[in-house]
Design a protein around this nucleic acid. Structure first.
Lengths: 346, 346
DNA sequence: AGGGTCGATGTGTACGTTCACACGACGGGG
DNA sequence: CCCCGTCGTGTGAACGTACACATCGACCCT
């Protein structure tokens, strides 16, 4: 016997009030956890809610409070799915805990699609915006749109500028890249190539900056990074190209997928990893431990980023305080794709 | 000069009407594309909308129409991220085109988390529900919750029952599994093992059924499938275990990640793929082409599933007709992880 | 005993939109 | 020439909730 078997219309606050024998305002107070209410009255109302199968109407609530309790999440549609999905899941859980909802919108990279995505978000009246895997083009679009919302971008930008009141928060990509590079240097590598992600992607740029800094610090020769997509396909093409040059003993890839492509290319070209070449990735997606050879990579805690980004946003929304912004340290996962360089390769 | 520089309050339909010199109802008509309206009036209203920076208030609209124009998407949080994410992206685009929004909710596998996820969905007043990567436990929870919505589950179930009015739609997993199995048989394999996904996951079960059917049809010996998670980690453990038995010449894994783990295990145990063992996966995630060796697998068009699932739902919502339900055929991608069996292995 | 305070509950109104209906003008048919 | 249908537009409600304020009783203090 489903309780909702009343009429065609869903029960509202007044129906509940009638059952409990109170006014609708009292019901409203119970719903919003008001202090000034007698325990027994509250109990009676709660029973009436239960009995009627009442659910607060979000639309009416949003209308009268002019608050949607919705956080917009703008995610760029990319090859790397693990990170974003993990973050979004964590966000959703955290948001729900605080009584918020998520409006997830994915976008391409062109200004038009970004603008369209932004438009979709505003039309849903989001109260804040979290940008996952942000690109500079996204920032530009946001600035153009002149929308004024609490904004958190999930990147660890130190070197990139962003719209005024935006916070950025993430795993420290710069530091992660330095850890990866340092690891290779400590193994004895002197000629290290970076296969980088698209430079309009802020995280990718951070990784490259970290790589370059560490090289500079150790006075090692800097070769121009190869720029491309964060995909295994591109990693493969880059790897084939690299083998022709033979002027390196290690490669630091901007993510694990690229590293996978490199492993593939190196095997195809008859090179052994890590004997002939060392390879380091970034992200530590669950598959990376099973690449051949298992990949040395930089682990980032995506779930923590997702969770805390929502806390940041809600802190600003509910208490006006932005909350503390402290980048999360990544961890280097040393596996079997890195080893000291051998002679014959410089 | 942003047009919204009016007051603290956002412009509403009446403000627009005042500017255009018409009544608010006329504005409403323009917004909803009514026929009975003079072109020049319409033009005037449109200019007023532009000038004021007016945006329709969704909450008010939802309140009065009692339609949220929101489609709930229930996704189980899994290891395999590529498929769901690709589908969700396609859904979002398709939904937007039809003027709908998505409410994405991810859930674990326990009855409690599923119930909680369902609760989140109802509280958002979704008009329909699409279940991504459904498990039987999800169906049970849906039935228990006695919610009455257009329901589409993204699986190709032939052998599983589901709640009354649900439609299911997907790539044909059964057929895909048969294709994979047939491929191995045609190569000459007689002893094939299936490393299956969790059986409460309907897609995984479909794959197993297809595998078993094909074996039965060819009168080949059936070994008990290994059941586990759809992860590389589990694939690895299963692979190590399998090598001890040595009673097979080919393995059909329930997804690509599992296949990756198998490749890893086989290499660790000194077996060569495909020389000693053939391996087939399922999904054709972008990385699969770069496994070592590149993986023979079954490709499914996730984006098409996402797109058409939304069309199905909206068809039912807008026109009352469910739309046609026809499974999408998968494609076998033959790469380098499969070859005829060699002697020494039965 | 009376006034003031506070705690608990009720009444009016507003939020922004759509729906049902009313209204005036215009044209055609008898 | 009048009536009536139709086209274009306007007026009054209603959706379900929260906020501001009003009310009412009880209790305390003097």
């Amino acid at each position: 016997m489903p309780p909702e078997a009343g009429r065609g219309r869903a029960p509202n606050i007044r129906d509940v009030a009638a059952i409990a024998g109170v006014s609708y305002q009292t019901v409203s107070r119970v719903l919003n956890g008001s202090e000034k209410i007698r325990p027994e009255t509250k109990q009676r109302v709660l029973e009436a809610i239960e009995e009627s199968g009442f659910r607060p109407n979000q639309a009416a609530r949003a209308l009268v409070t002019s608050r949607s309790r919705t956080i917009g999440v703008l995610s760029t549609h990319q090859y790397a799915h693990y990170g974003p999905q993990t973050m979004v899941h964590a966000m959703e859980v955290a948001a729900d805990l605080a009584g918020y909802r998520l409006a997830l919108v994915t976008t391409g990279s062109t200004p038009e699609t970004i603008a369209a995505a932004l438009e979709r978000l505003v039309s849903q009246a989001v109260e804040a915006l979290i940008v996952v895997a942000p690109k500079v083009s996204v920032f530009e679009a946001i600035e153009d749109s002149s929308l004024d919302l609490p904004l958190v971008t999930l990147d660890s930008s130190i070197h990139n500028k962003r719209p005024g009141r935006a916070h950025s928060f993430a795993v420290d990509q710069y530091e992660g890249a330095r850890m990866a590079t340092r690891h290779l240097i400590e193994l004895g590598h002197r000629s290290i190539i970076h296969v980088a992600g698209p430079q309009d992607w802020i995280e990718a740029d951070e990784r490259m900056q970290g790589f370059l800094f560490e090289l500079g610090e150790k006075d090692l020769p800097v070769r121009a990074p190869i720029l491309g997509e964060l995909s295994a396909d591109f990693g493969y093409r880059a790897g084939v190209e690299l083998v022709r040059r033979r002027d390196f003993s290690a490669v630091f890839a901007a993510n694990d997928q690229m590293a996978l492509g490199l492993l593939h290319a190196f095997r195809d070209e008859g090179l052994s990893v890590p004997h002939d070449v060392s390879v380091v990735g970034f992200d530590d997606i669950p598959d990376a431990a099973h690449y051949l050879p298992p990949l040395t990579t930089v682990r980032q805690d995506f779930a923590a980023v997702g969770r805390r980004s929502v806390e940041l946003v809600i802190g600003e929304l509910d208490q006006g305080r932005p909350g503390s912004v402290e980048f999360i340290r990544p961890t280097l996962m040393v596996r079997e794709s890195t080893a000291p360089p051998t002679a014959g390769w410089r």
